[in-house]
Computed example of a mutant assay.
Amino acid sequence: MNRRSFLKWSGFSLVAATLGGLGLREAHAGNRYYSGPISDHFDGKVFFNPGGEEPRGLSDLLRWQFGGGKMEWPKPVTAADVVTTKPEPRVEGSRLVVTMVGHATLLIQTAGLNILTDPVWSERASPVPFAGPKRNNPPGVAFDDLPKIDIVIVTHNHYDHLDVATLNKIVRAHNPQIITPLGNDTIIRAENPFSRTAVMDWGDRLDLEGGFVVHCEPCHHWSARGMGDRRMALWAAFVIETPGGKIYHIGDTGYAEGKHYREVREKHGDIRLAIMPIGAYEPRWFMKAQHQNPEEAISGFRSSGAAFGIGHHFGTFQLTNEGIDDPPKALGVAMSAAGIGADRFKGLRPGQQFEVPRAGA
């Protein structure tokens, strides 16, 4: 293999690891992260999407990576070219303010509680610090400008969502309650054995102080951090009950005919805010089962019955084929077709904030 081929192979391998491994079958019979009873989404060895579609294998991965069609992103911008925000220390009462840090990292503030989702401040979403998908923009909130973090939600173990280096810093600086699905606690505790980590299965409920409740709910995705651990840790969405209304947060999901959106509406009723991914969706033949596109996101938003929405998972790490501005452009088209105004659903850029109105306001 010549140098150019090696670099291309190395690059796609790291992107594949970011998205969750190389599409290979498990290398051994055991599960390195979780041991528990068989359920409707765990077969005793690995987790799965009931009635859903499994991620594609190595041959399809190679077809995608060497098939061309990847749009060129602009060169990374510097901090001077990016809006940065210093959030309020606390947001009280029924006010709800969400600040975009970048990709799937958002700061949610309401009723005196500060919640951080899938925190990644590292330069790369990768298993190694010297290669792999690199940030196209600095975080919209400097790490030292974070308010005191009370809760961290980690939705699954892909490198663009579970960043151990960032979690280490957050644990040292804030000692928050970390909430994550089954098996991911093993990864987190391996680096932070004394972290306050609560682990949840789909359907579980966690009651917190101040009238907050966290529900762990299904989404259609998968997990892995390399070769040999595919689907050994669970992925999930979360519904957060707050004194000012419910927040539905999804880190990553395929649309799966919208069934999870309908189910969450049936179970949880009125939702004030839905936060969902709108990026990393091309080529469609490869990504459809794991990443919804903006049109599907808007369809899911409508099915959930949420009053307001935020789109994330675009513009920071180039993981797939679409251009850097394709997701927000496609989002605008989908919103217009669905008759949803710009005041109801926002694709936030790093540093941007959305003060969410009360439902019905």
Rank of each mutant, 00 (worst) to 15 (best):
L146I: 06
Y248P: 06
K288A: 13
A131Q: 12
K246E: 00
G300V: 11
N168A: 10
A27L: 14
G30T: 13
K288M: 05
I179P: 02
V120T: 05
R358I: 13
D207R: 06
S299L: 08
R90K: 09
F143E: 02
G210Y: 10
M335V: 05
G210D: 09
R196D: 09
G305F: 04
G351R: 02
L319S: 00
P89D: 15
T84Y: 06
N192S: 08
I170Y: 00
A111R: 02
R124K: 03
M1N: 13
A233D: 00
P277H: 03
D343W: 05
L208C: 12
L96N: 01
V82C: 15
K148T: 12
Q318K: 15
I247S: 05
E53R: 12
T110W: 01
A330R: 12
F345I: 14
K259T: 11
G52D: 12
V333P: 00
P89R: 09
G300P: 04
I247N: 03
A359V: 08
Q353P: 13
R349K: 10
G339Y: 04
T105N: 08
E266L: 09
A17V: 09
D204N: 13
P74V: 01
G203N: 12
K267P: 07
A237L: 00
E241P: 14
L234M: 10
P139L: 08
Q318C: 13
R265E: 05
P139I: 05
F12R: 06
M335R: 03
A165L: 02
A280Q: 03
P139W: 03
I247C: 08
S223D: 01
L7M: 15
E295G: 15
A359W: 00
H291F: 03
E54G: 07
G57W: 07
L348F: 04
I187E: 03
R349C: 00
G11P: 02
A342N: 09
V199R: 03
A359H: 05
P55A: 10
H174N: 07
D185C: 02
W64M: 14
P37K: 11
L107M: 09
P129F: 09
T316W: 02
E53N: 08
V264L: 05
S299Y: 02
V356G: 01
A337D: 14
K86D: 08
R265S: 10
R124G: 01
L58G: 02
Q292N: 06
T197F: 01
L24A: 03
N31Y: 01
F47Y: 12
V199L: 03
P243K: 06
M200C: 05
G23Y: 01
P133R: 07
R349F: 06
I149P: 00
L58D: 00
G347M: 01
V152K: 04
A256V: 10
N114A: 09
R284C: 10
T85H: 14
W235Y: 14
A307L: 06
S13T: 12
E322I: 09
Q290V: 13
T253K: 02
G258K: 01
V333I: 11
K267T: 11
K288R: 13
F238I: 02
G30D: 11
G360C: 11
M227R: 10
E26N: 12
A289Q: 11
D60G: 11
F130V: 12
P328N: 05
T316Q: 06
V333M: 04
A111D: 02
G11I: 00
